[in-house]
Nucleic acid binder design. Structure first.
Length: 271
DNA sequence: ATGGTTGTCATACAA
């Protein structure tokens, strides 16, 4: 059976609830992972999201910042959130889907929101960048502790790193810009490789083709300048790599009224 | 070299 999962940094789920409705109507993934819901638990639009056909929802939120959620057409048997960097930041949530989602033993979907890291790419001068590097180090340690994948798994999210040369509009000009500095790209690629995750977008669309999932709000004309970065990722465990059929970047949502600066990325698998 | 925009919460701060 076909299984689809989407990751989307929504930059306020309450402000963009209509965009969520439209996207779910048009693309209808089985599972939607959101980041930056920017919404405390008691103000999360649970019933509205459920009315879009996604009965199974988990939200991990806080006031003003961060926040991750997973919407699913299938029931899940467990939910869990990691607490990284000893902060109660809402930057991770995971679910375990049951057999009705297509994998006999079920599988885990992890949804991460990696810290953006501020503007100055020096951990000694910029505590936000230090936090980002610590977060990536803890993701690496978490992967080491998990060990080799015993069951199919998916890791998605706004990882706030564009790891490869053709994941940014200009590799040379972004080498000292947070999101594409060597210390970040090497950290992300190392933790991904050690844990055996397959980068689904690059598995199906290798370099040198450019892929972007984020365009700054500050550009006068984001589409004309097209100075994007690939910050949003869908990784799959090695046993799922052969099941990948497509990875779609919903670039069109960036042109919707009052868009998020990130667009949805959807992977389809034949399980 | 600089500033450019958006969202939350109501004043800076994070992205």
């Amino acid at each position: 059976m076909r299984f689809t999962v989407t990751t989307w940094n929504i930059n306020s789920v309450r402000l963009r609830i209509e965009q969520v409705r439209r996207f779910l109507h048009e693309v209808a993934p089985d599972v939607l992972c959101l980041q930056e819901t920017k919404c405390p638990e008691d103000r999360f639009p649970l019933e509205t999201l459920q009315s879009f056909g996604y009965r199974h929802v988990v939200h991990c939120g806080q006031k003003g910042y961060n926040g991750v959620a997973i919407l699913s057409r299938y029931s899940f048997s467990a939910r869990d959130g990691l607490e990284l960097c000893a902060r109660r930041d809402a930057r991770h949530v995971s679910i375990t889907l049951g057999p009705d989602a297509g994998a006999a033993a079920g599988f885990v979907v992890h949804n991460f929101y990696v810290p953006a890291g501020g503007d100055v790419p020096d951990p000694d001068l910029n505590p936000k960048f230090a936090h980002k590097l610590s977060f990536l180090a803890e993701m690496r340690r978490w992967g080491d502790e998990r060990g080799p994948a015993k069951a199919p798994a998916v890791l998605v999210g706004d990882l706030n790193v564009a790891p490869l040369e053709h994941d940014v509009w200009s590799h040379r000009q972004l080498l000292d810009v947070v999101s594409h500095t060597p210390v970040e790209t090497e950290a992300l690629e190392t933790l991904r490789g050690e844990a055996g995750w397959v980068d689904s977008a690059r598995h199906l669309t290798p370099e040198p083709e450019k892929i972007y999932t984020w365009w700054s709000y500050r550009a006068q004309d984001w589409a004309a300048s097209d100075r994007g970065r690939r910050l949003d990722h869908i990784w799959v465990s090695p046993d799922l790599a052969g099941a990948l059929r497509s990875v779609e970047v919903s670039r069109g949502t960036r042109s919707w009224t009052r868009p998020s600066d990130h667009v949805p990325v959807t992977a389809a698998m034949e399980l």
